[in-house]
Simulated assay, not measured.
Amino acid sequence: MSKNILAIDDSASIRQMVNFTLKSAGYHVVDAVDGRDGLERAKSQQFDLVLTDQNMPRMDGLALIRALREMPAYQRTPILMLTTESSDEMKLQGRAAGATGWMVKPFDPLKLIEVVRKVIG
C-alpha cells in the first residue's frame, strides 16, 4: 500500500510539481491550498508525511506544525518544510515548532524523493 502524503502550498505550480514528483515515485498525494485547509484535511484523514510551505495566507507553516503536533495522531508524523525561507533563525523556529526537516525551494525533484524515502520509506 502506498504512503499518504499531505502537500500544502499556496502556489498551484508548486503543488502540481510536488504532486507529479511524488506520485511518479509511487506515493498517494493530497493537496491543500494553505495551512488552515491542510489542518482540516489532516483532521479528516491520517497521513504518513506532511509537506508544508511556510509563507501562506490564513495559517502559515509554523502555526500549522504547532497545531498538528498538538493532535495525538500527528505527534510522531514526519513534517517537512518546503519553503523559500532559508535563514538559520527560521529553521530554528521550524525545529522548535516540531518540523522534522527542511528543504529550500526551488527543489530538485530527485532530492525530494530521496528525502521522502529516507523519512517514510
Score class of each variant (00 low, 15 high):
24 S>I: 09
25 A>G: 11
25 A>Y: 12
30 V>T: 15
30 V>M: 05
31 D>L: 08
31 D>E: 14
32 A>G: 10
33 V>I: 15
34 D>I: 02
35 G>Y: 12
36 R>N: 08
36 R>T: 04
36 R>Q: 12
36 R>I: 11
37 D>G: 04
37 D>K: 03
38 G>E: 10
39 L>Q: 03
39 L>C: 04
41 R>K: 13
42 A>H: 01
42 A>R: 01
43 K>L: 15
44 S>K: 11
44 S>I: 04
45 Q>I: 03
46 Q>L: 14
49 L>D: 10
53 D>E: 15
54 Q>S: 12
55 N>P: 04
56 M>T: 07
56 M>P: 05
57 P>K: 07
58 R>P: 00
60 D>W: 12
60 D>K: 05
60 D>L: 12
62 L>S: 08
62 L>C: 04
63 A>L: 09
63 A>N: 10
64 L>I: 10
65 I>C: 14
65 I>T: 15
65 I>K: 02
66 R>A: 13
72 P>K: 08
79 I>Y: 06
80 L>R: 03
82 L>C: 01
83 T>L: 00
84 T>H: 02
84 T>Y: 01
86 S>I: 01
87 S>C: 10
88 D>R: 05
90 M>K: 02
91 K>A: 14
96 A>P: 00
97 A>V: 05
99 A>I: 11
99 A>N: 08
100 T>R: 10
100 T>M: 08
101 G>A: 15
101 G>E: 12
102 W>G: 08
103 M>V: 14
103 M>N: 10
106 P>Y: 01
106 P>I: 00
106 P>R: 02
107 F>G: 00
